[in-house]
């Protein structure tokens, strides 16, 4: 997913909790097949909401502190934040429309 920035424990606070616009984080792992299947959907959402929200990827194996801190029990997990507050959380595969609707609701509130 070349067009989505990957974040780690080192910059999660700055990029997500300190962001001034809605953020969708896709918690993923290299070994996770469903995460790979969801990857095109996450890319589509990143393109669709470019300029309105930011989408990041986080590999849970490379970022154990955030994994524990956010209580990630499985992947894929998607979390939507606004001004540092976690607004929505989903686990497992889903349609891009469902994920987009949740993000759009936060974007609308933020606007």
């Amino acid at each position: 997913m070349a067009n989505i920035e990957k974040i780690t424990d080192a910059n999660f606070s700055e990029k997500v909790l300190g962001a001034d616009r809605p953020v969708l984080v896709d918690f993923t792992a290299a070994w996770c097949g469903p995460c790979k299947a969801m990857a095109p959907a996450v890319e589509d959402i990143a393109r669709e909401y470019d300029g309105e929200a930011t989408v990041y990827l986080m590999d849970i194996d490379e970022s154990p502190d955030t994994r524990h801190g956010q209580g990630i029990m499985g992947v894929p997990t998607f979390m939507i934040f606004n001004h540092g507050e976690m607004i929505e959380r989903f686990s497992g595969s889903m349609s891009r429309s469902k994920l987009a609707a949740a993000l759009e609701a936060v974007v609308a509130d933020a606007g």
Binding site: P40, A41, D44, R47, M94, S95, R96, S97, K98, A101
Partner: peptide, 24 residues
Amino acid sequence: AEGIAAAAWDLDRSPGVATDMIYP
């Protein structure tokens, strides 16, 4: 409703959306 909404994307930009209909 979510099932048909799942397909409401431009197939040029989002070619995988028909398969998204399986989740709903």
